[in-house]
Simulated assay, not measured.
Amino acid sequence: MNDFESPILSVKNLNKQYGAGCGHCRTGDEERLMKNYCPKCGTVYACRHISFDLYPGEVFGIVGESGSGKSTLMQCLYFDQDVTGGEAYIRTYKNGEVNLFGESSQQKRHIRNHQMGKVYQNPVLGLRMGFSSIGNIAEKLIAAGSRNVGAMEGRGRTLLEHVNIPVRRMKEPPKNFSGGMQQRVQIAKALSNNPPILLLDEVTTGLDLSVQASVLDLIKKLQRQLNISIIIVSHDLGVIRMLADRTMVMLDGRVIEYGLTDQILEDPQHRYTQQLVHSLL
């Protein structure tokens, strides 16, 4: 199979729940739940049987309202949370033959440092606000095994220039920056080790519209230049329309629609997706 026809990432039957479940909700009967919540025992089924593939050079969008499970899914993929069940395989990690979720904590750190980068909605989660911007990038490089100070400084400078952070501000901490600049530093840090996969979780939420546009333009430019595979999560279908090749729609922890972004926008099948598309018009 051609490399571009083979997924870079495959996720199979990912589940994440908060709570042990009970006889009432473990049956799998959807009607016994209030959305994704069990009224008897309080268990929340945040992600239910999520499966998808991500291909080389593809931008894959995940859209849904707050509480749909999309950010929980991203947290599970980056090992910020443990899954309840399921499998994930990266083609460039152990020939794509080993379930990432079954690996040790040490191996999961290796995967985070070499196979994936993540940009969080809240920059505080992705950056050390008191470190310099170039120091944040160096931290990620050191975690991946780099020790040459000159090489790390050169790499950091190149990346920060890529994301339009002025050279004169490279030694400044992100706490001095605007929200849009903080997101750009996060993007530079996430890309520091040339990961094949970049995870973007609500990266434009809370930013002014003009700043949103500049961050989205930057993501498009970098994706074209680096041919990196991106998963982008948003509650805003306009962001997904601008960036994503294919889109998955989530509601109450489940996938309710999945296909080419143009197809979903032009001919949505599920009533919830129809409402989303209508709100965009």
Rank of each mutant, 00 (worst) to 15 (best):
M1Y: 15
M1I: 14
N2R: 10
F4R: 05
F4N: 09
E5Y: 09
N13D: 12
N13W: 11
K16P: 00
A20Q: 10
G21K: 13
G21A: 10
R32V: 13
M34G: 03
N36Q: 10
N36I: 12
Y45A: 02
C47R: 10
R48A: 05
I50V: 11
I50K: 03
D53W: 03
L54E: 02
G57A: 04
E58Y: 12
V63K: 02
L73S: 04
L73C: 08
Q75M: 11
C76S: 15
Y78A: 06
G85Q: 07
Q107S: 08
K108E: 07
H114L: 14
M116R: 05
M116W: 00
V119Y: 08
Y120E: 04
P123H: 05
G126C: 10
L127H: 03
R128Y: 14
S133C: 10
I134P: 00
G135T: 14
N136Y: 00
K140W: 09
A143H: 12
A144F: 05
S146P: 03
R147F: 05
N148I: 06
N148T: 11
N148P: 05
V149W: 03
M152W: 14
M152Y: 08
G154S: 14
R155L: 04
L159W: 03
I165E: 02
R169Q: 13
K171L: 13
P173S: 05
N176W: 11
F177I: 04
S178T: 10
M181C: 01
Q186F: 00
K189G: 05
P195R: 10
L198E: 03
L198Q: 02
L200S: 03
E202L: 12
T204G: 01
T204W: 08
T205Y: 00
L207F: 05
L209Y: 12
S210D: 05
S210R: 14
V211E: 02
Q212Y: 11
Q212H: 07
S214F: 12
N227D: 07
I231L: 01
I231M: 01
V233G: 04
H235K: 06
G238S: 15
V249K: 01
D252A: 12
V255H: 02
I256C: 06
I256T: 11
E257H: 12
Y258K: 11
Y258N: 14
L260D: 09
H270A: 11
Y272H: 07
Q275M: 13
H278L: 12
